[in-house]
Design a protein around this nucleic acid. Structure first.
Length: 419
RNA sequence: GUGGCCGUAGCUCAGCCCGGUUAGAGCGCCAGGUUGUGGCCCUGGAGGUCGGGGGUUCAAGUCCCCUCGGUCACCCCA
């Protein structure tokens, strides 16, 4: 007996009807993006390793979670762990007119231990805007995400926001945090001490109780912002206020990717009791285009995790899978020709129609019709064939209004019935 | 990468602690009851390498080890 293969760890199949729900979610996102003037961008799932390394040398995402390997010609390549880097690479490569506003949906890969809401292969939807420094675009981007949550029916998603300042601000702040934490090294958890060496800001994200005090007393970025960065941040907040978008300032919100500058934000789902409750996040990455060999270009965007979004919808009891229903189900008692031909005829006329292969008893076919959730059964037996008619039996009531119609009038009769 | 819990029919699970005839249930599926009428009901049927490998034993779904997978938490992040 041959081995029965199964999906790799952390990777999943998505089958109907769940697949329809995912598609519906992406469709909604696409509409929201289009409405705001964003075009779809499709970038490769695989890039040169260097593209993703710009995401941050000190981050877990690139140091230990990347699916990287050597291509046949020796090139170091990797499956994308996120899409922003690829989109910015595309911007640098093609130099579209700015502002360049794009949305995307796609799959990413991170080699992590799976748990609820975290898989090795996961989908994200997101937007990016390149070439605009205006703080109003920060507000626009955030508003887009917030509107999308609302459209899904989500009510319990909180917006956390912070500013990390310009490059220089961030450096000075990082040093201050490092000094603060070094002075309290003894009281930190072992994991935190380890993180401190590589990336001091990340310690601020620690959930460990031992670290709480040191984190609580740590310097706050706000005190390190340049006038320029502070002004930008205030304008963003003013924009959110004007648009009626609620937010919580989170002075220690740092986020995992190194390229963030100035505005950073995160969306947290209160309905998720799991540890993985961040459904999305984003911010400015004003230096990234330059890091990828392009001209200095401002940029901002966000990414939302499709799996977590759907889990959140489950938790809030909203955005059910779209109910797929058929218009008609053909029941054939005369050998199969009618099922074959009528189903084809109905589909050619725009009706959603199906039948049962292999025929079977009338009971079996009616059962199949019922299960298909079709609105009406089209029954063809000896009597109907002899009279050049078909029986039209409604399936959503008790069927008492069943009647026979001329076969030549089927399309019109069905159309009238479905009105 | 670290730790806890869990892998028995398509699905949800019982059986495992205290090894012992043909491994069970509900749901689903198929068929019949009703030879031209679905949903409800009744009857019957198909379907299982007990995740995989090794060990202990006269005997392993049950005990031990390894391994793979799932799940939850840490870490990190969407």
């Amino acid at each position: 007996m041959t081995k029965a293969f199964q999906t790799l760890k952390g990777m999943r199949d998505v089958l109907p009807p769940e697949s329809a729900r995912r598609r519906a979610l992406v469709d909604r996102f696409a509409s929201a993006g289009t409405l705001a003037g964003y075009g779809e961008v499709v970038v490769p799932l695989v890039e040169e390793l260097g593209v993703f390394e710009r995401v941050g040398e000190a981050t877990d995402v690139v140091t230990k979670e990347m699916y990287d390997f050597t291509d046949r010609d020796g090139t170091q390549i990797a499956l994308r762990p996120e899409v922003t880097a690829g989109v910015v690479r595309a911007f640098v490569q093609h130099r579209p007119l700015v502002p360049w506003k794009v949305w995307y949906s796609g799959t990413n890969f991170r080699h992590e231990r799976p748990q609820k809401g975290r898989y090795r292969m996961f989908d994200q939807v997101g937007v990016e805007v390149l070439g605009v420094d205006d703080p109003d675009v920060d507000a626009e981007v955030i508003a887009l995400a917030v509107a999308f949550f609302a459209e899904l029916g989500l009510r319990r998603v909180r917006l956390l926001i912070n500013s990390l300042g310009d490059h220089g601000d961030r450096e000075r702040y990082t040093e201050a945090v490092r000094a603060h934490l070094e002075a309290r090294r003894a009281e930190l958890s072992e994991a935190a001490r380890d993180t401190l060496g590589r990336n001091p800001l990340r310690v601020l994200d620690s959930k460990r109780a031992e670290d709480a005090e040191a984190v609580r007393t740590a310097p706050v970025v706000a005190d390190f912002l340049s006038d320029d960065a502070a002004g930008h941040y205030q304008r963003v907040l003013a924009g959110l206020d004007a648009l009626g978008i609620e937010y919580e300032e989170a002075p220690r919100l740092v986020r995992g990717l190194d390229y963030y500058r100035r505005t950073t934000f995160e969306f947290v789902a209160d309905a998720l009791d799991a540890a993985q409750n961040a459904v999305g996040g984003g911010g400015r990455y004003d230096g990234l285009a330059e890091d990828l060999g392009g001209p200095p270009t401002d940029g901002i965007g966000f990414a939302l995790g499709v799996d977590r979004l759907l889990l959140t919808c489950d938790a809030e009891g909203v955005f059910d899978a779209p109910q797929h229903t058929l218009d008609a189900f053909v029941v054939d008692l005369v050998g199969g020709d009618a099922a074959r031909d009528l189903t084809h005829l109905l589909r050619a006329n725009g009706f959603a129609a199906d039948r049962r292969f292999g025929g079977g008893s009338m009971k079996a076919q009616m059962k199949a019709a019922d299960r298909s959730a079709a609105r009406v059964a089209i029954i063809v037996g000896e009597d109907e064939v002899a009279a050049c008619e078909v029986t039209l039996r409604p399936l959503r009531d008790d069927g008492s209004s069943q009647r026979r119609v001329a076969r030549s009038a089927l399309v019109d009769e069905l159309r009238a019935f479905l009105q």
